[in-house]
Design a protein around this nucleic acid. Structure first.
Lengths: 253, 253
DNA sequence: CGCTGGACTACTGTCTACAAAAGGCAGGCG
DNA sequence: CGCCTGCCTTTTGTAGACAGTAGTCCAGCG
């Protein structure tokens, strides 16, 4: 008779705090907070004593981070935090935007009550965070809101890709020395979410697609230098186009 | 003096045959070949002696397969080959198609010589495989050709997602008892790749986008039952729409 | 003074072993 | 006869240790 306990309650626990999951979360936070910057080596032994876990769970965690695109593993060399070139920025932002468009096209017509409710909750959180003095929660809740918009489609695979891209984007924001500016922009950007929410409630598909286009770029454009190395032909063209559109939009304000 | 060996040649070996990679490949082949069917449990101990590797590399391999969407891990229950519902089919095929559209839109205008060359190679392989009696290589090379089309965009993240979706699609094809029919369709479908290739050479963006739309569906529609369980509202609507479009297209032939 | 060869260091890849938890099965009791 | 409970088996999660390889640094020679 060790413990009768409650054999049924364990069923509800969807997250038995496995060391791997904990390690993954801690590692992800380190990257997102900028403690680990792109290009930094990720040494297993160092991390194990730093996080207080053994190597196997840490390796699992690194696998997760790799899947999320935050670190890359080189076969016999070890792992590094994913280096970010302008081309990567191009990939992340352009794909992210495309996915938002797809999600809206697929999800808005459905108007699932449950998913709409989740979106409203995310919106409420966002507004609450915008009121707070600290700005860190603004970034987090803003990303959560966008994720909830994509979630309207009820498309798991689409959501997974979007989640990864969002994480990579946050890593980029943490990386850059102009991150503070980015956060401020995010706060100002939060005000733009209200009209978006109204379009959702109205079921205005076209309006949402239009609003979402170039919505994230504005925030993000400030976080990088365009004279950095690692440009590809398409990324160079893309940056030029975005900047021009941005200037145009500024004139209209 | 153990071995002077050739310390320089090892540099060129990009793939030191790590046990994990080997295990991943073997496991993937098992799933794609239908030896492991969706819903089957993936027992670690059984697989280790079957593949002749130890548990750690096998776990790494399972992580890779999970990332590819071929298996799912339930925390304290073990792993199973990803079960496929009609809703999953909807997700896979619809997203795959969207990505092809994006890739063409981004990639065709660039006309990178190197990527075009890769595509031509894939096309040559496909034509060669279509001549052979065995049909297995037709499926493989057909998927490779489509991947090369997506590769035109030079968008790594887009390609990765596409690769995953293709693998899941192949798993579905292996799963179904009407797989033989699907393969035959793929062979007939191979003939349709020639006009697509010509559109690429001509740089006809609109034409490609139009040709790619509903291109894969035809092949794939045969591989599933529409009366299966696991439908969602959107998947049901999607199936209905696709079937109608398909019938329409048949009439035009 | 520069280059090349070798040895060293430190990291990753792999394996064996242990502990804990969940599910299945059998036996007993109501 | 059915249900509940306790044990057992199976399987995963975790830990620590070992070997192999790649990169680096130093010393010796040209």
């Amino acid at each position: 008779m060790t413990e009768p306990d409650h054999p049924s309650v364990a069923r509800r626990i969807s997250a038995p705090p496995s060391m791997s999951a904990l390690a993954a979360e801690a590692l992800r936070d380190m990257v997102l907070a900028g403690d680990l910057r792109p290009g930094d080596r990720v040494i297993e032994n160092r991390l194990t004593e730093q996080l207080g876990v053994s190597r196997p769970p840490l390796r699992e965690a690194m696998r997760v981070l790799e899947q999320e695109g935050l670190i890359v593993q080189v076969p016999r060399k070890g792992a590094v935090v994913a280096p970010i070139t302008p081309h990567d920025i191009y990939e992340i932002v352009s794909l992210r935007e495309e996915i938002e468009q797809i999600a809206v096209r697929l999800g808005v017509p459905v108007r699932s009550r449950e998913r709409l409710e989740r979106l409203r909750l995310a919106f409420a959180n966002l507004e609450a965070a915008a009121e707070e003095p600290g700005a860190s929660r603004v970034v987090e809740t803003s990303f959560a809101f966008h994720l909830a918009v994509v979630g309207l489609a009820g498309h798991k695979r689409l959501e997974d890709v979007y989640r990864s891209l969002s994480l990579q984007m946050r890593m980029c924001m943490a990386m850059n020395r102009r991150a503070r500016a980015a956060i401020e922009t995010a706060r100002e950007d939060a005000a733009r979410h209200r009209p978006l929410m109204e379009l959702v409630e109205a079921g205005d598909l076209e309006g949402m697609a239009h609003t979402l286009a170039h919505h994230g770029q504005r925030t993000f454009l400030l976080t990088i230098e365009d004279d950095a190395e690692g440009h590809s032909p398409e990324s160079r063209a893309w940056f030029a186009r975005i900047r021009k559109e941005e200037e145009e939009a500024m004139r209209h304000d």
